[in-house]
Write a protein that binds this DNA or RNA. Structure first.
Lengths: 159, 159
DNA sequence: GGTGAAAGCACCGAGTT
DNA sequence: AACTCGGTGCTTTCACC
């Protein structure tokens, strides 16, 4: 995997697109004082290189009635069952991400639910998977801002 | 907070936009067999209602050299210091999200780093915050697919 | 709430420097 | 690599259903 080299201009383009994918290329062109055609070529190159993998809509799940977030640590009887359990967990609706981890838990996942009752259903589904010995739940009471732009800046400042 | 009522058409529009914000409204219009103007109006309404809060680019951080993900559980001496610590943690570069949680940890965060050495630096920064007693790190060895589209489907199937 | 048409822009590839 | 330019197609508005 050859590392793709991004320059200052690419950084600026990503910076403008990261939290607004629908900004017109002509606007970016004006801000960076280069032509819109160039923006187009550079974005295409970053897409081809796999740096840009897509775009997604930010949806306020709270407004849809899903304001409950919890992290669930999962303990497994035998580590050989890890892959199997990971796959089963990933299939459960409202599990938004799952990781195989070192440390305390074997698997670690995040769930998004309507309320505690709904969360209980989801956690019970995890508990019921063959190979799972028990789970430990951490309920999120407050989430701090999750800012993609800041992560990107941190990365660009380092490179 | 009056709950905004989405109908089947809104669901379909969100479904098409959730993992491709740049799909032309004219394409959506063809698929749903309604006019592009209507798509425009509905998207605008969902934006005004705060259901759609924005759009973001999906970037492959691995390709940029940042393939290390870990979750860090944080223990705090006195719970009254929680807010202070949360704010300090949120300011640390490469911390991508932080939660105040019930359960084992007081605060729980996710970090994205270049490698273990880099992660160590980040975790030391967390440990150094006034009020933090100790931290517990879980390194992600494998991440399962994180699919926004699936979450949205689960939600729409319930409503 | 939806339509369809029209004006204004944006996209994006080709050809040039 | 970057620019310009033009055809094509998208967005957005508005008068009308």
């Amino acid at each position: 995997m050859p590392k793709f080299k991004l320059d200052e201009t690419d950084h600026k383009i990503l910076d403008l697109l990261i939290d607004n994918t629908r900004i017109p290329f002509t606007d970016i062109a004006k801000k960076l004082e280069i032509s819109a055609g160039t923006i187009h070529v550079r974005v295409k190159k970053m897409e081809e290189a796999g740096i840009i993998t897509g775009s997604s809509l930010q949806v306020d799940y709270k407004k849809l009635g899903y304001s409950f977030i919890a992290y669930v640590g999962v303990f497994i009887f035998k580590t050989s069952q890890t892959q199997f359990v990971l796959e089963r967990i990933s299939e459960i609706p409202f599990v938004t991400v799952a990781h195989v981890t070192t440390g305390k838990f074997n698997i670690f996942c995040k769930i998004r639910a309507r309320d505690t009752a709904h969360a209980k259903d989801i956690i019970y589904q995890i508990d019921d998977i063959e190979g799972v010995s028990r789970t430990e739940t951490m309920i999120s009471m407050e989430e701090s801002i999750n800012d993609k732009k800041r992560l990107l800046h941190s990365i660009f400042n380092e490179i």
